[in-house]
Design a protein around this nucleic acid. Structure first.
Lengths: 201, 201
DNA sequence: AACAGCGGAGGACAAATGTCACAGCAACTG
DNA sequence: CAGTTGCTGTGACATTTGTCCTCCGCTGTT
């Protein structure tokens, strides 16, 4: 019996996947969480064989949780299940020690199959996505540039961002300018979009 | 047997929901589509009792499809199933003649129950959401303001927007200013967010 | 005919934004 | 040690953005 932990924030999706996986003879969903911060504690509690993690969750992101699981519960494999097949996400997932990366676009049948393959020691990654991740290259943004960009997503002014990140407004503008330059865009908004698109935030 | 059409763009979600509904004794999923433009033709073809529509789809939106279904196939009830419980969405769904509005956050069990209730002639709407929709008031933006705002979502400059909407740059700035004023925000980006949030786009 | 209302456009102005050059400092690398 | 890179900060500058006021032409109303 494959003991599975499922982390997904959308209630309906979570419930549906749990029910589906429960229908499989060899798979058992032993825990469901809807919050990123609950992943590691729950995993330590129920000790699953595999954790199925969404990336975008309330609280800690699935990628962070994956990295922490790697050391906290090395026996547990991680399969990332996400809406967005962003190159940077895949890259970070691999760096976090995930064994597989699945996008929610595909057919449901893929899911159980992927779980079994991961448990068998295989790595499960969409080949097209892998190619995109490699061709896109690594994240060109520095930590600070990411900070400033993420603080800018909701339309905050330079002053707002400066306050949030504890920097001088002038410095914030420099970082924004740098980010705009590196992403090859023309303004904040485009830079944010481009960085999001690539999974650089 | 309740004949159901399912429109949802995420393959895994669509497949999972279809399987789940198929497990119910009295429900039968007679068609699945992943594209908004396919909804009406498919419905005319299979003549379902109820259409389960996501709002944000490639091609036509689920709301537009709902409105068209209303006249093209009046016997078919519409149940909107969406990720975002935005007041404006709910309002538009009701105006489009939908019989129910469900957010994907809730438990899966709600879905089959909602379908049965809709078929029984009831209207299914989350009370909290209904209150929010009423308190938020109607969409304050004019058609042009919406056009300009939607053209601004991806960080386009005034010139870009002007070209897309076939207006003078000066006019575009006026509309943006109006939209910013009406949404009570400080700049484009915030205005776009606010309008999105409320389902005004 | 006079009127108001609205969509579109222009001008002028202040504020915010993006760019650039430069400088000090810390940390790492060869 | 010298060189590089990243972080933080200035100051100056051109451009863009947001605001406000005005004007024109069309439409429908009284």
């Amino acid at each position: 019996m494959i003991r599975t932990l499922l982390a997904e924030d959308q209630g309906m999706m979570r419930g549906a996947l749990a029910l589906l996986l429960g229908l499989e003879d060899d798979i058992e969903v032993v825990a469901q969480v809807g919050d990123g911060d609950a992943i590691v504690p729950t995993a330590l509690d129920v000790r699953p064989d595999i954790a199925l993690l969404d990336i975008e969750l309330p609280g800690r992101s699935g990628l962070d949780a994956a990295a922490e699981l790697r050391t906290a519960l090395p026996s547990c494999r991680v399969l990332i299940l996400t809406t967005f097949g962003r190159p940077g996400y895949l890259r970070r997932a691999m760096e976090a020690g995930a064994s597989g990366f699945l996008v929610k676009d595909g057919p449901v049948e893929d899911l159980a199959a992927a779980i079994r393959r991961v448990l068998a020691g295989e790595r499960v990654i969409d080949p097209a996505l892998a190619a995109a991740a490699l061709s896109a290259g690594p994240n060109p943004l520095t930590q600070r540039e990411r900070d400033v960009l993420t603080a800018a997503v909701d339309g905050a002014t330079v002053t707002d961002i400066a306050a949030r990140v504890h920097l001088s407004p002038a410095t914030v503008r420099n970082y924004l300018s740098a980010a705009i330059g590196k992403t090859g865009t023309r303004n904040r908004m485009e830079a944010v979009r481009a960085a999001r698109q690539n999974g650089w935030l």
